[in-house]
Design a protein around this nucleic acid. Structure first.
Length: 413
RNA sequence: CGGGGUGUCGUAUACCGGUAGUACGCUUGCUUUGGGAGCAAGAUGACCGAGUUCGAUUCUCGGCACCCCGACCA
């Protein structure tokens, strides 16, 4: 992608009303734009990141046997009345059409997927079943905040599992834990993300959250100093030791919930009468679990955790481009070399943002730091005289000179 | 939803009861090119409504929007 053609430019200042680091940097870099409180557009750069995250999640969900589908956001009131959540859920958006018919804008999808599953689940032979989707959710947050960490419309992956027994749910629960760990490792925040015991609500004793330690977090967690497990503050009064090893040495940290896994059991299968025939021909309630990850929140968390004083630092797996190619100066020979290198990178399938703007070196460097692409390659009269191009990672301070024909093999690794 | 704060060109800001200024960005021209370049010439702005006043962007009230703290929540 040539930067002269890229929709949106960087800006020097963040909007005065943004306080959250993720919002400031993502807006300055041209990744997102705020339409209203808690509602953001993902611009070309931002969407590229979101898609990378989406694909990492999709890969893990598929590996765990998930089948992807896409359910509507526009959902009939009756389904929500069946579960009682039309009245009990405060943050439900309710919309009326011209005939007065009311609908919910889906904040979650049990009210759609359970009746759907009911059409196809009738025997123990149909179980277990794992269905997921990646799509926008709507929640009427009383207070949207922290940039893309808490919005009113946000993209989420939600997977629902259907089982014959709680034991089988428990088995799959462990598979999902592993899948989630893989996801957070792959996007680069695994080291700061903890499996956290949290309140189980009305369904079961505890649910599990994945909490990433960052000052921008809304939650307080207590991390076991022996094993990589934490306890959410909401249950610390009843759970004062590590639930995994019993250790009492817990460290308090601020953290953001990047994912959760939840045993629904029969909370939704009962109101919809979702049952299956067991081997004896008896009707049994289907046991369910649900597993969510907010994609925008995850993206914002990555920014919060990885950014430095100069800007964003993307992990290669989620970066909008792998290489940021900068051409400096007006020298025709330099431009030609940069053009050729850009063509070669593209030919080799290396995603490259090519800064071909007629801008000063300082501006290009500052923008490269802000945008946070993992590799920076500089082509200039100086670099050519020194033997080729300068190359450095976003995380490195010093660049080194590499010959033009050595570039592709270096960034291909 | 309770409390607090803020609304001025695209962005960041200044000033003011009497013709709204600056920087960046944008347009045109020339120069410049290794850490957000310079000169010159341009274009672009007071959230909405009511009130006070000779006159309101400025003061008062109401609304709306946005932000922060809290409660709630992925």
């Amino acid at each position: 992608m040539r930067q002269t053609k890229l929709f949106t430019k960087t800006r020097r200042e963040a909007p005065a009303d943004e306080v959250a680091k993720n919002a400031k940097l993502l807006i300055r870099g041209g990744f997102i734009d705020k339409l209203q409180s808690g509602v953001y557009t993902y611009l070309p750069l931002g969407l590229r990141v979101l898609k990378k995250i989406e694909n990492i999640i999709r890969e893990e969900m598929d590996k765990a046997g998930g089948q992807e589908l896409l359910m509507p956001s526009f959902q009939p009131k009756e389904n929500w009345q069946t579960t009682g959540r039309w009245d009990s859920m405060d943050d439900l958006y309710k919309v009326k059409d011209s005939s007065g018919r009311e609908n919910a804008l889906g904040p979650t999808h049990e009210e759609v997927i359970v009746p759907l599953a009911k059409q196809f689940i009738s025997s123990y032979r149909d179980l277990p079943l794992y269905l997921y989707q990646i799509q926008n959710k709507f929640r009427m947050e009383l207070r949207a905040k922290s940039g893309i960490l808490r919005g009113r419309e946000f993209m989420m992956k939600d997977l629902y599992s259907f089982h014959q027994s709680e034991k089988d749910l428990g088995r799959y629960y462990e598979i999902m834990k592993t899948a989630y760990e893989n996801i957070f490792d792959k996007v680069g925040i695994g080291g700061k993300t903890y499996l956290t015991f949290a309140s189980g609500g009305s369904f079961s004793k505890y649910s599990h959250e994945f909490q990433t330690v960052t000052g921008a977090g809304e939650d307080t967690i207590y991390i076991c100093q022996k094993c990589k497990v934490a306890v959410n503050k909401e249950i610390i009064s009843e759970q004062k030791t590590c639930p995994s090893c019993g250790n009492a040495d817990l460290k308090e940290e601020k953290a953001i919930e990047v994912g959760n896994i939840f045993e629904l059991k029969t909370r939704f299968s009962e109101p919809f009468n979702l049952t299956f025939k067991d081997k004896d021909g008896k009707n049994q309630p289907v046991i369910m679990g649900c597993y969510g990850i907010g994609l925008g929140r995850l993206m914002g968390t990555i920014v919060e955790v990885m950014a430095d004083e100069k800007g964003i630092v993307w992990t290669e797996s989620v970066a909008p481009f792998k290489v940021h190619l900068l051409s400096l100066g007006k020298d025709e020979e330099t431009k030609k070399k940069a053009d050729e290198l850009y063509a070669e990178l593209e030919k080799n399938g290396i995603e490259t943002l090519y800064d071909d703007r007629d801008a000063s070196a300082g501006e290009k460097f500052a923008d490269a730091d802000l945008i946070g692409i993992p590799w920076r390659i500089v082509v200039s009269e100086k670099s050519i005289a020194a033997g080729g191009v300068e190359i450095k990672r976003r995380t490195e301070k010093e660049s080194k000179i590499v010959s033009l024909d050595g570039v592709v093999s270096i960034v291909s690794n």
